[in-house]
Design a protein around this nucleic acid. Structure first.
Length: 586
RNA sequence: GGGGGCGUAGUGUAGCGGUUAACACGCCGGCCUGUCAAGCCGGAGAUCGCGGGUUCGAUUCCCGUCGCUCCCGCCA
């Protein structure tokens, strides 16, 4: 070893000890005859002093050293004199008096500061990701990620799970997201697909009798990116035999609670986690991934304004739509311009407009005030529980548009007004999702979750009579308005699997072609089973208090799915193309 | 595929239809034996993302394009 100690581990007890340290020069303070380095390795910082009176050669060499040089220092740990202790540093009670200095490697001046947490353009950070990763923020996030993963492994091992790897080169299937595909050299014109998740493989492991499987699984989806979506991402994927949905939820709930207790100082808002039906979540929060850290729930005004003189309300109610509102605390002072911006936002989400009512000392002030009767105004105030100074925002439209637009308003305003406590984790379960939804574009039913999800036992007959009404035996785990995981009890017999494929408009021939292995496997004693996958990147981002999962991924892609460090994707040679039996169409 | 924001020394920002594009940090040199965001003195460093247009004159206004980013679509 080129070092005998870690910089950050040095304490008062080590005073008098001769140590050899190695690391990066974090900062340098040159006083002429006296030079200070803050020496950094992964463990932290320690101050090193070069005194010309102690070692002339070391001091002379130290004059040439610059930030990010990699150096080795041999010296003696010394207690700092009274008044020179640095309380901001874990090693602040001591310093290392340098006797020897070796420059292991010089460094160019870095393109951005490594030793300060200052904002830098993402473009530059990603091009020099190896330098960005040197910064404290990223080291903290990577260490947190490691702790989360190691805890998960330890917890599941303790619960008798087996970690089993599944292939990265799989087979493209028609359902779901776009696949990343890999051309086959050996089989001209044929392709592998990278897994969108190890879904089928883990079910087959259940058929194989492994009972409890997990994997820290890399998943790939060729869809457009977001702050919480990368083309490749990581899931804690697990599957269990002989369980029902409560068993899976109880396990994950216990895992999350213990995880937070061990590695985070954040507070869990409510235990056991609240369980909401999909219907309830949509009605109360306008979202299937509600942020429960604040109120501002959606209030149904439909009955109160059904016969209103305000035509939009009356007509919407008559047409079977909804009129719902949220009450924004203290927002009656919003300007016309601010409200216009909110109106633009809800219009983007399908609403035709936004009605505002300001609760003032002498009643409701609103552009539609003159159309509302006193009874209607009283009802609105009572239902929304508005106090003086609050702003009521209402949307009249179809159930779907009302949920979408008010759901957006609710989270948008909460973030504007800082209503969400950043130190709170509000976990909840969302259950009773519809099994299928109608896809207008494809003119067929598609699986809300995935085509291996079981319907609730009593809902199987609905698949033929009224497919949209059938509920899935599925569950999502949500935290602070983010979906951090989802799973279901699976179909485990060929009869029900065929029934579902046929509801999805997948012909028997297609089903055999695409999923024959699964249908066949189900004929050989497949146990009842179910599982879940947690989005590791999202979970770690929440625990790291980061807004983007890029901040918890070592080498992430940009919003246009490129890697600015590697310059990928990139063209391949004509020879490679030929070997793969590919030609590029311009 | 669509919409919004951003792009000015190494980094972060300011600026303006008109002489030499400003500030902080960083960088280079000098001084300095108790600093820890060291200090003091001096200095270098920018085809204002790229292309086109309007104009006597464009970093500034317009159009296009590229990159980063956020959102909609998409994401079983």
């Amino acid at each position: 070893m080129l070092k005998s100690m870690n910089c950050g581990a040095l304490r008062k007890d080590h005073v008098g000890r001769t140590v050899t340290l190695a690391g990066w020069v974090h900062r340098r303070r040159d006083h002429g005859g006296l030079i200070f380095f803050d020496l950094r390795d992964r463990s932290g910082l320690v101050q090193v002093v070069f005194n010309a009176d102690v070692s002339e050669p070391a001091h002379t060499l130290a004059e040439t050293v610059r930030p990010e040089f990699v150096v080795q220092i041999k010296g003696v740990v010394a207690a700092r004199p009274e008044g020179l202790i640095n309380p901001n540093l874990a090693t602040g009670e001591i310093e290392v008096e340098a006797h020897e200095l070796v420059i292991l490697n010089a460094s160019k001046t870095p393109p951005f500061p490594i030793n300060e947490d200052v904002p830098v353009r993402d473009e530059i950070r990603l091009k020099y990701r190896y330098l960005d990763l040197r910064r404290e923020r990223m080291q903290r996030n990577m260490i947190l990620r490691h702790q989360v993963i190691s805890f998960m492994r330890e917890f599941l091992n303790r619960q008798d799970f087996l970690e089993i790897e599944t292939p990265i080169l799989l087979k493209s299937t028609p359902e779901g997201a776009r696949d990343y595909v890999v051309p086959s050299r050996i089989h001209p014109g044929k392709f592998y697909a990278l897994p969108q998740s190890p879904q089928q493989m883990k079910q087959l492991l259940m058929v194989a009798g492994y009972e409890r499987y997990y994997q820290i699984a890399r998943c790939f989806r060729d869809e457009d990116l977001r702050a919480d979506r990368q083309p490749e991402f990581t899931q804690l994927d697990l599957e269990m035999s002989f369980v029902d949905s409560e068993d899976v939820r109880a396990l994950i709930e216990a895992l999350l609670i213990e995880l937070v207790g061990r590695i985070s100082d954040m507070r869990i808002q409510e235990q056991p986690f609240p369980v909401l039906s999909y219907h309830e979540a949509m009605e109360r929060f306008g979202s299937d991934r509600p942020d429960l850290r604040y109120g501002m729930e959606l209030v149904d005004l439909t009955e109160a304004v059904r016969h209103s003189k305000f035509g939009v309300f009356a007509n919407t109610a008559a047409a079977g739509g909804q009129i719902k509102a949220i009450c924004v605390p203290g927002a009656a002072s919003f300007s016309r311009k601010q409200i216009d911006q909110l109106t633009e936002g809800v219009k983007e989400r399908g609403a035709k407009g936004l009605v505002w009512l300001k609760a003032e000392h002498d009643g409701l002030r609103s552009s539609i005030s003159k159309f509302l009767s006193e009874e209607e105004k009283d009802a609105i105030i009572e239902l929304t529980e508005a106090n003086e100074g609050d702003l009521i925002l209402a949307v009249a439209d179809s159930k779907e548009v009302v949920a979408e637009s008010l759901g957006w308003l609710r989270t948008h305003l909460a973030s504007m007004l800082g209503l969400a406590d950043p130190n709170t984790l509000a976990f909840c379960w969302v259950v009773d999702f519809p099994l299928l939804e109608w896809d207008d574009e494809e003119q067929r039913w598609v699986a809300v979750h995935h085509p291996f999800t079981s319907a609730k036992a009593s809902d199987w007959p609905l698949l033929e009579s009224d497919p949209g009404k059938a509920l899935a035996n599925a569950y999502d785990v949500v935290c602070n308005g983010m979906e951090i995981g989802g799973g279901s009890i699976r179909i485990h017999d060929a009869k029900h699997q065929s029934l579902l494929f046929s509801a999805l408009g997948i012909s028997e021939e297609e089903a055999r072609e695409q999923f024959g292995h699964l249908l066949e496997a189900f004929r050989y004693g497949a146990p009842p089973h179910g599982g879940i996958a947690l989005g590791l990147d999202r979970l770690v981002a929440i625990l790291a208090r980061e807004d983007s999962i890029r901040e918890v991924i070592a080498f992430p892609k940009t919003a246009s799915a490129t890697d600015l460090m590697l310059n990928s994707p990139s063209p391949i040679s004509a020879r490679q193309l030929a070997e793969l039996h590919l030609s590029i169409v311009e």
